[in-house]
């Protein structure tokens, strides 16, 4: 369910590492309930931008608010209002499904009864009830990723950041994963997602493509294809990213 309320506001946000400008005065807005695709080649500055929005890195200049909080001063409030999940880090492999859920819910200060209730719904929804006491490392990758996503939105954040959530996942599970994303968005959670699968870019409401630290293009997938006279998002991306000069990660 998309509303007009802006939940991420970015205005000329810049991050420099010495002489190197990782993100160069990027500006965009994301509204509530939107699925926002954040694309770019390796080293284009995606990770840096995402870190700033999650309150993990202080920008060099520019303005940005996430869920209404300032990325310079109110990073603690930001962290309370967002969920984060990446391909690399998500769950503790040596804890069980239940223990992971309880741990993450506990971090966000959810009450015991709320955790219990949420856990039941979540396990049923993911059809994981039979596996609740299994160690996470024994689950197939696709299940892990779905579980990680559900855990990331357990505390009902306003925004969830997903960093390449579907890498290496089989095609069926990948689609099931996107169903979860749609459901979250329908509930009003804003989804900010990066991916290397270009067909997934089509599932986003709007897509931004970063090249060399700048946002080169930002529009709906349909409009982007029209503008670049391309038949698929893959083509759009290749056209834009081919021009990249920067090679560093």
């Amino acid at each position: 369910m998309m509303t007009d309320e802006t939940v991420i506001h970015v205005d000329r946000l810049t991050k420099k590492f010495g002489d190197f400008i990782a993100t160069n005065a990027i500006s965009f807005d994301v509204v509530q309930g939107e699925i926002f695709g954040f694309l770019g080649a390796n080293g284009a500055g995606k990770t840096t931008a995402m870190r700033m929005l999650c309150g993990l890195s202080i920008p060099s200049s520019g303005k940005a608010t996430v869920a209404g909080f300032d990325v310079y001063k109110e990073t603690e409030h930001i962290k309370q209002n967002i969920g984060y999940m990446s391909q690399k880090f998500s769950l503790y492999e040596d804890l069980t499904v239940k223990e992971n859920i309880r741990f993450y819910a506990g971090i966000y200060g959810m009450s015991r009864s709320a955790i219990k209730e949420k856990m039941k719904v979540l396990l049923e929804q993911l059809e994981l009830s039979a596996e609740e006491n299994s160690l996470v490392k024994s689950l197939p990758l696709g299940w892990k990723q779905k579980l990680a996503f559900s855990v990331a939105i357990l505390h009902e954040p306003r925004i969830v950041f997903l960093d390449e959530p579907t890498g290496g996942v089989d095609p069926v599970t990948r689609r099931e994963f996107w169903n979860l994303i749609y459901e979250a968005a329908a509930k009003g959670i804003t989804v900010f997602v990066t991916t290397h699968y270009m067909d997934e870019a089509e599932y986003c409401d709007r897509v931004s493509i970063m090249v060399d630290g700048v946002i080169e293009a930002l529009d709906t997938p349909a409009n982007l294809k029209k503008t670049y006279n391309a038949s698929s998002m893959d083509e759009v991306f290749l056209q834009l990213a081919r021009g990249a000069k920067r090679a560093a990660d």
Partner: peptide, 13 residues
Amino acid sequence: DEPTTGVDAVSRK
């Protein structure tokens, strides 16, 4: 073995 995993579309091509 999976030379293109985690690599962007341009580099993959």
